[in-house]
Design a protein around this nucleic acid. Structure first.
Lengths: 286, 286
DNA sequence: CTAATAGTGTCTGTTAGACACTATCTA
DNA sequence: TAGATAGTGTCTAACAGACACTATTAG
């Protein structure tokens, strides 16, 4: 392991002479799509920015990655700050946004993580010091037109307590061999999302809706043991419409193990199940 | 648009006083999974590192993102350097790797892009100044065991001219609601991949194999007009095994438009088709 | 004619959507 | 008993895998 480079340096000598301070470097942040299901609706946490830039806009919670901090550690830190829970919250990487002009402060490259937690794990996420407010927004996406040229959809974010309504037009169109997506604020609403956050929200919605059917991702929104009806309620909140109970039960059972236990809300007792990720299609799929 | 923050600053005043030079910043790079199909095999371009760190290891081609350069622009720049073509090469973002110790030089956060190009577009990719060699490696992945606990697979990278063989063991196992993946160099081979590049290679293989069946991604490996047999050859190279011709033709035609033209290699003339991305399942899927 | 490539037809088991039905518990 | 929740059974159309078959061209 004492290989030498063309300048005759060992690795240690090379590293000692390595200096990248002559270059200006981007800043790196993590942002967080934090989803939960509450009252049969898919919800997203947004914080209202207290300072420039994008002052008073609603933004994804997030922050800078410390130089000596793993990206996942930064996500966990942000999650704990927002949800006040230290237990493991599920998240996975969604996308990295790095357009050079996406933030007026400096070059900021942000990696967005999609995280989910059961409603009961959230202790009233409250505004942090960099936010003047925080709220859970109901998320939905509806196709308004679709043909061989492309598809147009509407992504809406609603917060009832504060009466906030945001509406973005998403256009997917054929570009050679792939689909290009653009998004634009639709009406002169009373609020808007900061920076390019609508892109992340739209990607997250698409991904969650797609994976809800083929992977066990929705179990991150449920307690470890749950009834078939609870699973179906979460599924319907994600996809945005009702689905057939018989068919849903027939199919979801392939991913479940009965616990033998039961629980009752009203009427008949309901059997409790546990999710086994290896039984799901996760292995075959992505 | 002259909103004022709590310090009484306008956006302009805020930006003038903004200074993040007191923090040490990570470096940001893009790396590239460049795939093509040649002689019925899925190939990946790797370059052999000329300098520390990971000297003499095989690595994904890539480089630093300039401070004033969009990430996609950096990818295009790297692609042109490697393939010597300026025409549009397809690519999409795969994943961002940012563990704090992944590179001994400094904190380096790299975003990996998956790109594909038809074989005829490659002008003999040659080693750049930071590489002492470059080669196209045949990629394959085989499951060696699978049960309710997890799955073990082997990813192999082979280069015949130089007689290079690399073999990595990939282990997927159930962790709560999701699947954790680990990878390890399997045998004491004559070569290995730099840094954490095997993770990116494995993710890329999984993603391409999965998407080959449900999206039109493989058309990025083909000329604009092609025969059904050419499409099937590329498909089989990606998934790594033969498939039924009748069934494949029946299904792939849903994404295609006949051009009316024909072409002949030997035997019967073959009809030429063109891919229409909107006919594919891309819209419904991810 | 044969060899080589291109392309079709059909059977069958599995799956997905639609929908009508039964079961258990409380008040 | 009614009302609420839990859970089942069945029909059918669409789809996917297996596989046998026909078509066109060169020499």
């Amino acid at each position: 392991m004492t290989a030498i480079n063309e300048k005759g340096q060992t690795l240690e000598e090379f590293l000692a002479s390595y200096d990248d301070s002559i270059y200006r470097h981007p800043s790196n942040t993590v942002d967080m799509i934090l989803m939960t299901v509450s009252e049969g609706k898919l919800k997203l946490l947004l914080v209202k920015r207290r300072d420039h830039p994008f002052i008073h806009d609603w933004a994804l919670p997030g922050g800078f990655i410390n130089f000596n901090e793993d990206m996942e550690a930064a996500v966990r830190r942000e999650l704990e700050e927002e949800t006040h829970i230290t237990s493991d919250t599920y998240f996975h990487q969604l996308y990295t946004f790095g357009n050079k002009d996406r933030d007026p402060r400096t070059r900021i490259i942000t990696t967005v993580y999609l995280s989910m937690t059961p409603e009961e794990n959230i202790r009233n996420a409250k505004a942090q010091d960099d936010a003047e407010d925080a709220g859970w927004f109901t998320l939905s996406k509806n196709t308004i037109s679709s043909d061989n040229e492309g598809r147009r959809s509407l992504v809406t974010l609603d917060e009832d307590e504060r009466g906030i309504h945001m509406e973005y037009l998403i256009e997917d169109s054929a570009m050679g061999n792939y689909i290009a997506t653009t998004s634009s604020l639709r009406d002169t609403s009373n609020a808007k999302l900061a920076a390019d956050h609508i892109k992340a929200v739209n990607m997250a919605l698409d991904q969650v809706q797609h994976r809800a059917a083929s992977t066990g991702i929705l179990f991150n929104l449920l307690p470890k043991e749950c009834t078939l009806r609870e699973i179906q309620n979460v599924y319907e909140a994600i996809i945005g419409h009702k689905t057939d109970t018989g068919n849903f039960r027939r199919d979801i059972k392939k991913m479940l193990v009965p616990t033998g236990k039961t629980r009752k809300i009203a009427g008949k007792q309901a059997a409790l199940y546990r999710f086994n990720p290896m039984y799901s299609y996760l292995m075959e799929n992505l």
